[in-house]
Amino acid sequence: MTVLLVALGAAVGAPLRYLTDRAVQAIVGPGYPWGTFGVNVTGSLILGFVAAWPASTAVAALVGTGFCGALTTYSTFSFEVLRLTQQRLRFLAVAYAGATVLAGFGAAAIGLILARAIHQL
């Protein structure tokens, strides 16, 4: 049953990642990977919330592993840093990598804090 929940969450997260990236690129253009940055930070926020929320293993599998695992993308992030470096946009590559890591940790911490605060109400 857990495997099905992970697959169901991933079936929603992966297309949402793709559609979000395409929508962001249509608005701001393909120069900077804002779509990947956005889904990675959003996924970190959701995962931080789910990790701190006293939920069942089913919810953790569906939302945490399935949805967030498919929504966020380390491989695309790594490729985009490499692509920026190859285009000789080294400062932008370092800034993107640093901003993604810092914003991801920050978003996860905010999600964790929110979940704990809501649970204590």
Rank of each mutant, 00 (worst) to 15 (best):
C68I: 09
S75G: 07
A108F: 11
T20C: 14
L62K: 02
A108T: 07
Y74F: 15
A99F: 13
L71R: 06
T36I: 14
Q87K: 03
G98M: 12
T100L: 03
A14T: 12
G69Y: 10
I113L: 14
Y18T: 07
Q87W: 05
V101M: 08
A60I: 13
A93W: 13
R116Q: 12
G35Q: 08
V12H: 05
G9S: 09
V24I: 15
A109I: 12
V24H: 01
A51Y: 05
F79H: 14
L82P: 03
G48P: 02
Q87V: 05
I46C: 03
S56K: 09
R88I: 01
A26L: 14
P33K: 07
A11S: 15
I113Q: 09
G98Y: 10
N40S: 11
G66P: 03
G66V: 01
V39Q: 07
A23R: 04
G38C: 14
G66N: 02
I27T: 14
G104N: 12
C68G: 08
Y18H: 15
G98K: 10
D21K: 11
Q86E: 14
A7G: 15
G104H: 10
T42M: 12
L121Y: 09
G38N: 07
V3F: 11
L102A: 13
R88C: 03
D21N: 15
V94G: 07
V50Q: 06
A10F: 03
V63D: 00
V59Q: 00
L62H: 00
A58L: 02
G38M: 15
L47A: 12
V6K: 04
S78W: 02
L84W: 06
A55W: 03
L19H: 05
L5G: 07
V3T: 11
L89S: 11
A58E: 13
A99P: 00
G13K: 14
V41S: 06
A11D: 04
F49M: 03
G111C: 09
I27F: 13
I118S: 06
L84P: 00
V39A: 08
A93P: 10
S75P: 06
Q120F: 13
L92F: 04
G31P: 01
S56M: 11
L5K: 10
I118Q: 05
I27D: 10
P30Q: 11
L114M: 14
A51F: 06
T2D: 11
G48S: 07
V81Y: 00
G66I: 05
I46G: 04
L8A: 13
P15A: 12
G9F: 08
A115Q: 02
G104I: 10
F77G: 00
A108V: 10
G35R: 03
P33N: 08
A52C: 01
R88P: 01
V81W: 03
G35N: 06
R22D: 12
L45Q: 06
Y74W: 15
Q25H: 10
V101N: 03
R17F: 12
G38W: 09
T20K: 08
